[in-house]
């Protein structure tokens, strides 16, 4: 049996001076699995993603990502795990405004030698970025040369997806990436992201408040089912 790529146990997190927002006994995400995590806004989804991405530190418990317990790593080591193995897509405004489309996509290769090595083996960072963008339906040269702030939200999200996917990370985490899209482009976006993740055997952790998306994934979990934090229970 393969090790899960993400495994949380007895995890607890609170912002300083506030009651805990997360209290997760157990959570697992398997390699290559596409998981839908549903939760209303304010339910601690983004906090959970921050913990998995290693930008937040748990108060107690263990956060295993790729066989390493993030709680035992230094900030710099967690940053390296994220740079090497994680792709992140936000709700919106994913792109650095002063970089071109391709420069945005290759950004993670600047911060990770592993990912740089991967894209160089695949024929160079720029070529790989263009290949991913083409797979996500962005191949028009005119479009690629445009300022990223002039792209539509749907196009921006696809650029962000290409950036998350570049250099074959083992895990893609997406925080409400489709909430600003209409139904058509939303389904298409999830399909493309899902296909690309599957091709590179990357696990996908997709977080949204919109339960209707659940059927598009291998598995769906409600955050309320695994999060036992009192403050959240009261809200619900």
């Amino acid at each position: 049996m393969t090790q899960p790529i993400v495994s949380l146990s007895d995890l607890s997190f609170a912002w300083p001076g506030q009651p805990p927002v997360l209290d997760v006994k157990a959570f697992e995400l398997n390699r290559g699995e596409r998981l839908f995590l549903r939760g209303p806004s304010g339910s601690g989804k983004s906090t959970l993603l921050g913990l998995i991405a290693g930008v937040l530190e748990a108060n107690s418990g263990a956060v295993h990502v790729l066989d390493q317990d993030l709680t035992e790593l230094s900030g710099g080591q967690r940053d390296r795990v994220r740079a090497d193995h994680l792709g992140v897509i936000f709700q919106m405004f994913n792109l650095v405004p002063y970089l071109s489309v391709v420069q945005n996509v290759v950004l993670p290769c600047r911060f990770s030698k592993r990912r740089l090595g991967e894209v160089q083996a695949a024929g160079g960072a720029e070529a790989e970025a263009k290949r991913l963008l083409a797979r996500l339906g962005l191949s028009d040269e005119g479009l690629l040369s445009r300022n990223v702030t002039e792209l539509s939200v749907g196009q921006q999200q696809r650029v962000a997806a290409a950036r998350a996917l570049i250099g074959n990370p083992a895990l893609i985490i997406a925080d409400e990436p489709t909430s600003a899209l209409d139904a058509d482009s939303r389904d298409r976006f999830i399909q493309l992201l899902s296909d690309e993740a599957q091709k590179t055997d990357a696990a996908l952790l997709f977080v949204s408040h919109d339960g209707a998306l659940a059927p598009l994934f291998d598995r769906a979990i409600d955050l309320a089912e695994i999060n036992h934090a009192a403050s959240i229970m009261e809200q619900a």
Binding site: A53, V55, G75, G76, D79, R80, R82, A83, D84, L86, V88, F90, F93, N94, L95, V96, P97, L107, P108, R110, F111, S112, R115, R163
Partner: peptide, 16 residues
């Protein structure tokens, strides 16, 4: 602020 968190998310370390 968002630019900084994008950079952080894509792997930028504090030193970057």
């Amino acid at each position: 602020r968002r630019e900084m968190s994008i950079l952080r998310a894509t792997g930028a370390r504090p030193s970057h």
